[in-house]
Design a protein around this nucleic acid. Structure first.
Lengths: 102, 102
DNA sequence: TCCCATACCTAGACTCTCTAGGTATGGGAC
DNA sequence: GTCCCATACCTAGAGAGTCTAGGTATGGGA
């Protein structure tokens, strides 16, 4: 996902807690079906974000089977804000380089 | 450069032929000094684009020392147009996912 | 009872870019 | 005249990030 996976996950979690599968569906939906995250990318990324303190997780027993529900933390929101600014700067830079071509 | 290196190089060459060093300077300038491509990334990428038929090159003896001047080809312009559309789709998708967060 | 959708996980491969080194030329400083 | 630096090009190997391909487990419907 071109280096923006953490941004997409944190951005999605910013709208409310969710478990892995739901997160994939949320990104798919909110991207207008343009982005399809892979499980093999999402789970390791979530574990990394948790290790970094950007998200927290808890096991939910409510629905059938095991589910691990992730929520964004305060530090995660700060990191998200930073990443959003970085993304804005990067996309503006690309637009600038493309200029007339875009 | 987050997987957009080819796009940036072709987009810059779309504005006119240039040699490697000038291309790096052009991207730096047009991006508002936000993007600093590395030589070690740019030269291999240009070679790959040439092998793919997207750019052509010639050695220029005019100025002091050797310079390899690159120009975008017809196939390169088609590829650039495709990449620009892809980039637009991707950035729109990211905006969609970020939603209120952005 | 079987199968499938849901849900989670990991190892290894792959792609892309960067780091760090190298070569070469011409011009200005001393 | 020689040294040094800016310009200019190049490559090997490392590193980061993501994907592929496999695995496990549960619950519900056929």
């Amino acid at each position: 996902m071109n280096g923006q996976l953490d941004l997409l996950l944190l951005g999605s979690l910013g709208a409310g807690e969710a478990h892995g599968y739901a997160l994939i569906a949320r990104v798919h939906e909110r991207s207008g079906a343009r982005l399809e995250l892979q499980e093999g990318s999402v789970y390791p990324a979530l574990h990394k974000l948790e290790a970094a303190g950007c998200v927290s997780s808890r096991w939910a027993d409510d629905a059938g089977g095991r589910r691990r529900v992730y929520a964004i933390t305060g530090a995660g929101r700060a990191e998200l804000a930073r990443m959003v600014e970085e993304w804005k700067g990067f996309s503006a830079a690309v637009r600038g380089v493309l200029g007339a071509a875009s």
